[in-house]
């Protein structure tokens, strides 16, 4: 049965990619909020809180956090699509067919990665128009891509848990709010040094800060500090725990 895993996943990936390309509005919706935030922070708050050096420099400072917010927005649609599948009965049809059962989940997860990457490209293009500049070479870009994909995978598995256990469409998407909010209490918008003690302690030690700092260093062509290991550890840790929980939830659902 597992011999079909790859083929089945590809077929099902093709299916959910069609869903995406036929409702491009989801990708646009996902990009609009982060872009609006970026505009707001750069042109409204930027004068007061930016590290100086004009809007271009602040966009460059903000972008890593904005990318993570984009992903957090995007994965709520994964939860939603999974939930809709279960509601519509097509899920049961797949389950009653001789296919690799995990292919159903992996197809949604890979779709999440692809559609998030499209949204991220849109956000980066807008950032470039707003003055984002980087001296990052191909290797650094590759490293950014790697971290972004890893983060997407990790939080997508959280989305899978939410989608599988949701009772309503709204519930399926609600889990992503805390993840969207997390960058605000991190180094994404302002340096954590300005925050009061307990808040700073939280900001310094939550996953987003290390990921943001790593991407920022990569964009700035600075040698990445230890933060890259912390970032990778967070992504892998969240990913593995969420994956395990998702598989357990799935098993319970289909047996």
């Amino acid at each position: 049965m597992t011999t079909h895993f790859l083929g089945d996943t590809i077929v099902l990936l093709g299916r959910s990619m069609r869903h995406i390309t036929r409702s491009l509005d989801t990708i646009i919706t996902v990009s609009v909020m982060p872009i609006a935030l970026m505009l707001l922070f750069v042109y409204v708050f930027g004068g007061a809180i930016s590290p100086g050096g004009g809007p271009g420099r602040y966009v460059t400072y903000l972008l890593p956090g904005i990318l993570l917010i984009t992903i957090a927005m995007g994965i709520s649609y994964t939860a939603y699509r999974l939930f809709t599948d279960m509601q519509s009965g097509i899920f049961e049809r797949f389950q009653s067919m001789p296919i690799a059962r995990s292919a159903v989940l992996w197809a949604h997860v890979l779709t999440s990665v692809v559609s998030n990457l499209i949204s991220l490209v849109i956000v980066v293009l807008v950032a470039l128009a707003m003055g984002f500049r980087t001296s990052a070479g191909p290797l650094a870009w590759l490293a950014v891509l790697g971290i972004v994909v890893l983060f997407t995978l990790a939080v997508t598995w959280l989305a899978v848990i939410a989608g599988l256990s949701a009772k309503s469409t709204d519930g399926a998407g609600a889990f992503s709010y805390p993840i969207i909010f997390l960058p605000f209490i991190s180094s994404a918008f302002v340096a954590t040094g300005t925050m009061p003690g307990p808040v700073r302690a939280f900001a310094d030690n939550q996953p987003v800060t290390s990921i943001v700092n790593t991407i920022r260093d990569l964009f700035a062509r600075q040698p990445v500090s230890a933060s890259i290991w912390t970032a990778l550890a967070w992504c892998l840790g969240i990913g593995i725990v969420a994956y395990a929980l998702a598989v357990v939830t799935y098993r319970r659902k289909i047996s």
């Binding site: 299916r15 069609r18 869903h19 519509s88 097509i90 049961e92």
Partner: peptide, 8 residues
């Protein structure tokens, strides 16, 4: 209940 993909 019909288990078809509405978007396809």
């Amino acid at each position: 209940f019909a288990a078809v993909d509405e978007i396809l």
